[in-house]
Amino acid sequence: MTDQLVLKVEDLKVYFPVKKGLLKRTVGHVKAVDGVSFEIKQGETFGLVGESGCGKTTIGKAIVHLEPAFAGKIYYKEQEITNLSEAEMRPYRATTQMIFQDPYSSLNPRMTVANIIAEPIRFHRPDADVTAEITAYLEMAGLRKECMLRYPHEFSGGQRQRIGIARALACRPEIIIADEPVSALDVSIQSQIINLLKRLQRELGLSYLFIAHDLSVVKHISDRIGVMYLGCLMEVATTKELYNNPLHPYTQALFASVPIPDPRKRSAKVPLQGEIPSPLNVPPGCKFQTRCPYATELCRDRVPQLEQVGDGHLVACHHWNNLHKK
């Protein structure tokens, strides 16, 4: 890991218009991502966790322009790439790649593995020795070169995920956005893919934005973690700090909710009651106040801002200091 920033997101907002009526007039917005800022250094893994609908996938898609940003800025190194046109974006396209959750829909069923991986090579480096490169990238992802002439449906989920990784690597990226890359896989295959991602990071100096709902996976792979709730970052800290000293009540509840694979550590109590509010109808003030056991009048009135509470530890809660002392 070096200190050079490769990706910086500043106050990013992604809103989806809600259209109603015959004329499809915009009557409001779903604030999928509502003012998120973070940065990723070279060779670092930044994990984004949160429950479904918290906007973590949308952030990933906004960074690679699959969703338009409503406001805010996205920087690749020093260059702002937020609103670049497709043509202006072209030189930066190869630098940021994505790995998808569903290994079944992420590969074109009508293309052979060789063609899938050749596509970015031919596009970005037309003079390259395509066959040699395909072999190299397949090997990097832990696949044999005999796979080349086969079609995706001949592979298992784990192998397909490896093909997806090889395709991303073929662009020679610096940043990989991994959107729930292991949550559709069996446990014994999960660990293979996680280890592969870690090994590639060491060997190629990649930076990851690792998006997942599974805290144990995120904790294992990330250097720093951001906890999201309803489109906002609630807490950001290094993995160790977050795990040993979670300050936000939501982070604490999230950690406590994860079942531990040891029957001797069973806990009887349910850490968090209630449901996530609909993103169409976000509560005022702190977004977590409807489920927070410590919510006060202040939380209902004012939105807490992310504030620095330690070395690289940010938390968005009015009462973190009091809770911490308890």
Partner: peptide
């Protein structure tokens, strides 16, 4: 909306 189309877009394929 398929992920492989998304992947192609992310790679910058026209």
């Amino acid at each position: 909306q398929a992920d492989y189309v998304n992947a192609a877009k992310v790679m910058g394929i026209p």
